[in-house]
Amino acid sequence: MNVTIDKHAFAILSDSESGRCEFAALDVGVSEEIDCGSDVALSGPLQLLKGVYARICREFLHGEQRALKVQTFSDAPPGSGLGSSSTMVVALVQAFAEFFALPLGEYEVAHLAYDIERNDLKLAGGKQDQYAAAFGGFNFMEFYEGNRVIVNPLRVKDWVWSELEASLVLYFTGVSRASADIIDQQSRNVTEGKQSSIEAMHSLKQEAVQMKECVLKGDLRRLAQTLQAGWEAKKNMASSISNPLIDDVEKLAFANGAHAAKVSGAGGGGFMMFMCSPEKRIGLTRALASQGGRLLDFHFTQQGATSWRIA
């Protein structure tokens, strides 16, 4: 169960005037140039950019390494739990598809982004973020064997959209974390047969179904209960998902009107999401602001990955 917000990842492609392959993450001030034809090392702070470039050249350009300038920036900090890494890979794939007129729809863009991130770059994680970024809007996603994915767009009533938007608060703890490390711990717990982790995963799956029903029916009270139950189950998947900082912020939030809490993404830090009655939102945001983190203003958006050309 997923919804996109109006924070974006941007990728800009152009021919390189230097005749070399140029990569730059503009928001963090990191850049690198390599000679075209040389091996592209899929590591370091620019691995997402280089990974997409290498895969596109190999799969769609018959191995030719075109001299390109690849630049990116994002509205969300890395390690925030908002799916920023996967969203950036989707943005890059979408930009390359536009640049080279590749016949890729939303499903193909999302799957290719997933394959690059998980298999080419060996970064642990799921695949919901890639599909969320590619499609946009409220979606109920089903994942099956053999990489079969079904994305079901939800027709959410306007008043539910507005009430839910007014009921949610996003708070950045100021702590970024490597989601792959936490996901690796969760995976180990499952493969080693840790019963509490396996039961937590089954609970989360069922709660996604319940959330879909709550959103479609406009039952926001039950949605808050389901969201909180999901967070409690998630904490049982790995010990690193929560910590004293997160616990303290959660207690403060509940003392100031929150009905439900959740750490976005893998856990361990990044953004926390709280659900409250709209009239409690101001008091909740003031209390959270006193903790030294940062509140993020946002709105839901229907728009998924999009691309355009500049003449």
Rank of each mutant, 00 (worst) to 15 (best):
residue 204 L to E: 00
residue 167 S to D: 01
residue 209 V to P: 05
residue 274 F to T: 02
residue 141 M to V: 02
residue 228 Q to A: 05
residue 231 W to T: 02
residue 179 S to E: 11
residue 90 V to D: 05
residue 40 V to M: 02
residue 308 W to K: 14
residue 164 L to F: 05
residue 32 E to I: 03
residue 159 W to Q: 14
residue 58 R to I: 09
residue 81 G to V: 09
residue 158 D to E: 14
residue 200 A to L: 00
residue 95 A to H: 07
residue 40 V to T: 12
residue 261 A to G: 02
residue 60 F to I: 10
residue 98 E to H: 11
residue 81 G to D: 14
residue 85 S to K: 10
residue 201 M to K: 08
residue 142 E to C: 01
residue 296 L to G: 10
residue 301 T to Q: 03
residue 225 Q to K: 13
residue 46 L to Q: 08
residue 300 F to C: 06
residue 42 L to C: 14
residue 7 K to Y: 07
residue 109 V to F: 02
residue 170 L to Y: 08
residue 52 V to Q: 08
residue 127 K to L: 02
residue 58 R to S: 14
residue 263 V to A: 10
residue 142 E to T: 06
residue 279 E to R: 03
residue 3 V to F: 04
residue 70 V to F: 05
residue 101 A to M: 15
residue 86 S to N: 12
residue 219 D to G: 06
residue 26 L to S: 13
residue 174 G to Q: 02
residue 284 L to G: 06
residue 212 K to D: 01
residue 215 V to F: 02
residue 115 D to I: 03
residue 124 A to G: 09
residue 114 Y to G: 09
residue 166 A to Q: 13
residue 87 T to K: 13
residue 221 R to E: 10
residue 211 M to T: 09
residue 231 W to L: 03
residue 284 L to S: 05
residue 227 L to P: 00
residue 172 F to W: 15
residue 275 M to T: 03
residue 35 D to A: 10
residue 109 V to Q: 08
residue 243 N to I: 04
residue 2 N to D: 04
residue 85 S to C: 06
residue 234 K to D: 02
residue 264 S to I: 08
residue 92 L to E: 08
residue 233 A to C: 01
residue 51 G to H: 00
residue 190 V to Y: 12
residue 272 M to I: 15
residue 71 Q to D: 09
residue 28 V to L: 14
residue 299 H to I: 01
residue 64 E to N: 15
residue 91 A to F: 05
residue 235 K to L: 07
residue 293 G to M: 00
residue 290 S to I: 01
residue 238 A to K: 08
residue 205 K to Y: 04
residue 54 A to G: 07
residue 151 V to T: 03
residue 37 G to R: 13
residue 150 I to H: 04
residue 157 K to R: 15
residue 96 F to H: 10
residue 194 K to Q: 14
residue 31 S to F: 15
residue 141 M to W: 04
residue 144 Y to M: 08
residue 266 A to N: 05
residue 45 P to S: 07
residue 147 N to E: 07
residue 50 K to V: 03
residue 3 V to N: 07
residue 186 Q to G: 01
residue 200 A to I: 01
residue 233 A to M: 07
residue 252 L to E: 09
residue 267 G to D: 09
residue 201 M to G: 06
residue 73 F to G: 15
residue 199 E to N: 04
residue 252 L to S: 09
residue 77 P to G: 09
residue 140 F to H: 00
residue 239 S to Q: 12
residue 292 G to V: 03
residue 264 S to V: 07
residue 219 D to E: 06
residue 52 V to A: 02
residue 33 E to D: 11
residue 74 S to G: 13
residue 5 I to D: 08
residue 247 D to E: 01
residue 74 S to V: 14
residue 94 Q to I: 11
residue 242 S to V: 06
residue 271 F to Q: 10
residue 270 G to H: 13
residue 127 K to T: 07
residue 67 A to P: 15
residue 113 A to C: 03
residue 151 V to L: 00
residue 279 E to V: 09
residue 45 P to L: 03
residue 200 A to N: 01
residue 186 Q to V: 01
residue 64 E to T: 15
residue 102 L to F: 12
residue 228 Q to C: 08
residue 307 S to R: 10
residue 7 K to H: 15
residue 6 D to F: 08
residue 302 Q to I: 06
residue 189 N to P: 10
residue 261 A to Q: 02
residue 307 S to Q: 05
residue 172 F to V: 12
residue 30 V to S: 05
residue 127 K to V: 00
residue 120 D to T: 07
residue 100 F to C: 11
residue 105 G to E: 09
residue 18 S to Y: 06
residue 241 I to A: 08
residue 299 H to Y: 04
residue 177 R to L: 00
